[in-house]
């Protein structure tokens, strides 16, 4: 199965309070996925292959294997359709440890719920202007005076 990588630098992203917030600076859309979806995003970031992600999710969440595989694959397809991830070389260095951590968790597993990718376009015209570049111009002087 195809490996994916985060579509950097066009996509900036953070996982905050169990919610993955993703910004596509090319299209001006931003997205949120919570719960299972945020865990999937975390694994994508770590370079796990789709197969490894399904395996790790199945180890962490309770549910039918086929349902979990379908839910994860659906999310990956949506993420790719929105150009948030692109086919790319896998970086598996951290991957297995994450999968093992998931499997090693002995407490009752939360129920698998198919992740939903929410899309927002209300900040489109702002995001298309490359605010990250612009906000660089307005820095708080967390600067090392020795650089001046």
């Amino acid at each position: 199965m195809t490996h994916y990588r985060v579509n950097s630098p066009n996509v900036i992203h953070e996982i905050i309070d169990g919610e993955a917030v993703l910004v596509n600076l090319e299209s001006g859309s931003y997205y949120s996925i919570d719960s299972v979806g945020a865990v999937v995003w975390d694994y994508l970031e770590q370079g796990l292959s789709p197969g490894q992600i399904v395996e790790a999710i199945a180890a962490q969440f309770a549910g039918e294997s086929a349902t979990i595989a379908a839910g994860v694959e659906q999310l990956l397809a949506e993420l790719q359709a929105e150009q948030l991830i692109v086919p790319g070389d896998a970086i598996t260095a951290n991957g297995h440890s994450a999968a093992v951590n998931g499997a090693a968790n002995g407490t009752a597993k939360p129920l698998f719920e198919a992740p939903v990718l929410h899309k927002y376009t209300d900040m489109e015209d702002l995001l298309l202007l490359d605010p990250i570049h612009d906000v660089d111009e307005s820095g708080w002087p967390n600067t090392n005076p020795n650089n001046a």
């Binding site: 917030v21 906000v135 660089d136 307005s138 600067t143």
Partner: peptide
């Protein structure tokens, strides 16, 4: 505004993270 070349990259990464936080806050 005096730009400091030495720290621009680090600041950019932190600001990217900060910007995503801002969107999360709005959500």
């Amino acid at each position: 505004y005096r730009k400091h070349e030495g720290n621009m990259t680090n600041q950019r990464n932190s600001k990217q993270a900060g910007f995503v936080w801002l969107l999360k806050k709005r959500l």
